[in-house]
Design a protein around this nucleic acid. Structure first.
Lengths: 124, 124
DNA sequence: GTTGACAGACGAAATTTTTAGTACTACATA
DNA sequence: TATGTAGTACTAAAAATTTCGTCTGTCAAC
């Protein structure tokens, strides 16, 4: 049964990253990818992908013998939701301190900083 | 037994926020705060705070009959670590897309944007 | 000294998240 | 048609997180 939406857990996010990159794939494909980083049973990946399908993050259709899974929403949209959630939990709603902290003590390449500055100018 | 460090879970973070704001407090004080937002047993808060103490995020000392808990590290430092973790998991290490997405989504008041732009200029 | 309120210790239930085992099906092919 | 293989469904164990109950001790007020 499909639920409308739901928060992505850590392990689920890993899988979504692979599928966004591959633009969809089978359990086997995803398993092969993740397994390079850390041992993980095939069925574990399958279970996770089923859950993601139930949660409405993936759809699937038969392709030959196996299912092919595809992300329902684009990466940008899902991640934007996660950012909102993060800002809510960690910064109690206000995104400004997050940016300030990122710009200040994180290593953003100078080039990117310039681009960001330009973006801000243009958005006004 | 104290472990050196550890990731903050959601519920733990809620408590840390209260203690950062109050600059330390008793279980009762924290419980009263959180209870305004959602029902929560006194002992639940107590357990969480004990765990936070074991994890090294809080210290405590007797004050009258009760313990007074205090954050070990300043909010800015802990949150900076959480941002790193988040950037790693969600943005696969690169913070730039996060900033871009925040600025683009227009979640930042114009006034703050200007200040950020100034910050960038000055950091060069 | 009894009683009631407050506080913590301890143990553990409930829930969520993560991981995996086993059995069953379809298919190719020897 | 017997057999190995790829794939899934179903089930559930394991681990982590969140929640809370009960018991015990202390202290103040009566």
């Amino acid at each position: 049964m499909k639920k409308p939406e739901s928060k992505l857990t850590d392990a689920e996010l890993e899988i979504m990253h692979v599928l966004w990159e591959l633009e969809g794939g089978t359990v086997r494909q995803v398993h092969e990818r993740l397994n390079q980083q850390r041992p993980l049973a095939y069925t574990t990946v399958m279970t996770m992908m089923s859950i993601l399908e139930e949660k409405g993050h993936l759809t699937r259709h038969k392709e030959g013998r196996a299912y092919r899974y595809q992300p329902v929403r684009p990466k940008s949209q899902v991640i934007s939701g996660m950012v909102d959630d993060f800002v809510g939990r960690v910064f109690e709603g206000s995104a400004t301190p997050l940016i300030v902290s990122l710009v200040k003590d994180k290593k953003i390449p100078k080039k990117d900083l310039e681009e960001i500055a330009r973006m801000i100018r243009e958005s006004e």
